[in-house]
Write a protein that binds this DNA or RNA. Structure first.
Length: 178
DNA sequence: CCCTGATTCGC
DNA sequence: GCGAATCAGG
């Protein structure tokens, strides 16, 4: 049956090899494969014995990682679920013009949409807005790419659209550390 | 702070 | 075998 993507099927392994040898970073590959973290990718890469990529022989590991006690979370489910996005929002096919004007639709209140550069799946990273733009079946497909809210898949603007019910979201002050 | 790969080790 | 936690570095 369908593989949720959490297992290393032959196809996935091959894609992993391809992308890795292709020079993509572990996080990029993880994003491409889906349902896996970059750690999983790196771990697999090493297990497959293709670490080092193109580069070879490097300063011998003098003092690598120390055996710190790894107290893992009791049972962390899925860190990030592959957002199905808002099924209601139907993207305009955009028949012509590759990536010209931006769909500055919903200008609800005062927020002016400072459209950032759109990005392809390859450049899409966890910290970037995953709001789809265009036709997913076309190579011109892009994602918003703006800085996403930490913990959410969208930028502030698209998050407001995606999470309508949220009447008033106070700016989240995330304290790193004092 | 963002990111990169490398390593250890509980599962 | 897998990958989270952690490390070390850019």
């Amino acid at each position: 049956m369908m593989d949720a993507g959490g297992t290393w099927t032959d196809e996935r392994v091959e894609l992993l090899k391809k992308l890795w040898t292709d020079g993509l970073s572990a996080s990029q590959i993880a994003a491409e494969l889906g349902n896996v973290t970059r750690n999983a990718v790196i771990g697999k890469v090493h297990r497959l014995g293709l670490s080092g990529r193109a580069k070879d022989a490097k300063p011998a590991a003098s003092v690598a990682a120390r055996p710190r006690k790894a107290t893992r979370a009791p049972s962390a489910p899925a860190p990030i679920a592959p957002q199905p996005h808002v099924s209601n929002v139907v993207m305009a096919p955009i028949p012509l013009q590759p990536v010209a004007e931006e769909p500055v639709a919903y200008v609800e209140d005062d927020i002016a949409i400072p459209m950032s550069e759109r990005v392809t799946i390859m450049d899409l990273r966890e910290s970037m807005c995953r709001w789809p733009m265009g036709d997913p079946t076309k190579p011109e497909f892009r994602f918003c790419g703006a800085r996403s809210i930490t913990g959410l898949p969208y930028c502030t603007h698209h998050a407001r659209i995606a999470y309508q019910p949220v009447a008033d979201r106070k700016r989240e002050r995330k304290l790193a550390r004092a």
